[in-house]
Computed example of a mutant assay.
Amino acid sequence: MTFCARTSAILYEYRPRNRNTYITVTKEGEVCVRSPIRDEQRIRELLCRKEEWIREHLARIHERTRDVHRPGETIRFRGENVPLGHFPALEKKLKKCQSLIDIEKYYHRFYRDEALLTLPSRIEHYARKMGLRPSSVRFKKMRRRWGSCDARGIVTFNTLMMQLSYEHIDYIIVHELAHLRHMNHSGEFHALVACFLPEEKRLRRELREIHPY
């Protein structure tokens, strides 16, 4: 029989068929424990051992909640929420917008222009450094992925990458160029990325939690 008991921000679920205990943190800041262990003291001990990991995840959630993007007032640019006053031309256009759809249209045009201005030189830098040349480089807005590389050697980058910090932008560039040698996510692929970005694991983990919008 399965039962749940909530204490503060902890959601405990007894799972007798589980072989292991799983602890996760939701985007709402709840700590979820799913475990075949029924003893409360043992569960508390497990949580204490994972305290640092839990605190790190809760801190990230708090930071994202605090640093909220407000369409029409700020723009997510190079890893920060920047007041539109920093971009007078864009701010002027947005003041005339009547709907969120129009606002997004101008945002996407801004990202496209910035991507075409910024990304080619960074791509060229890493292509030269890695000795890997794509047959073609393309830029377009994508909703579900930051970049892609196909079997023909065509590398495509999401113009919404301009929402990200330069550190994450560089990771996406190196990641897609590495696919020119390894069309998979094998150990050899990640090792190649790590040769040029030693923080590869951290950057990959962080990007899993960031989505284009």
Rank of each mutant, 00 (worst) to 15 (best):
A127Y: 15
A127L: 14
A127Q: 12
A127N: 11
R128N: 13
R128S: 01
R128I: 12
R128M: 10
R128G: 07
R128T: 11
K129S: 08
K129Q: 10
M130W: 11
M130S: 11
G131P: 09
G131L: 01
G131Y: 05
L132Q: 05
L132T: 03
L132S: 00
R133N: 06
R133Q: 03
R133L: 02
R133D: 04
P134S: 03
P134R: 06
S135T: 13
S136Q: 13
S136Y: 13
S136F: 14
V137Y: 02
R138W: 11
R138A: 10
R138C: 02
F139D: 08
F139T: 06
K140T: 14
K140I: 04
M142Y: 09
M142T: 13
M142K: 03
R143Q: 13
R143G: 07
R143P: 12
R143H: 13
R144S: 08
R144I: 15
R145F: 12
R145S: 04
R145Q: 01
W146K: 04
W146Q: 04
G147A: 09
S148A: 06
S148T: 14
C149I: 02
C149N: 03
C149T: 06
C149K: 02
C149W: 14
D150E: 08
D150T: 04
D150H: 05
D150L: 05
A151I: 14
R152V: 02
R152S: 07
G153Y: 06
G153V: 11
G153Q: 07
I154A: 08
I154Q: 11
I154K: 09
I154E: 01
V155M: 01
V155E: 00
T156N: 00
F157T: 10
N158D: 10
N158V: 13
N158T: 15
N158R: 05
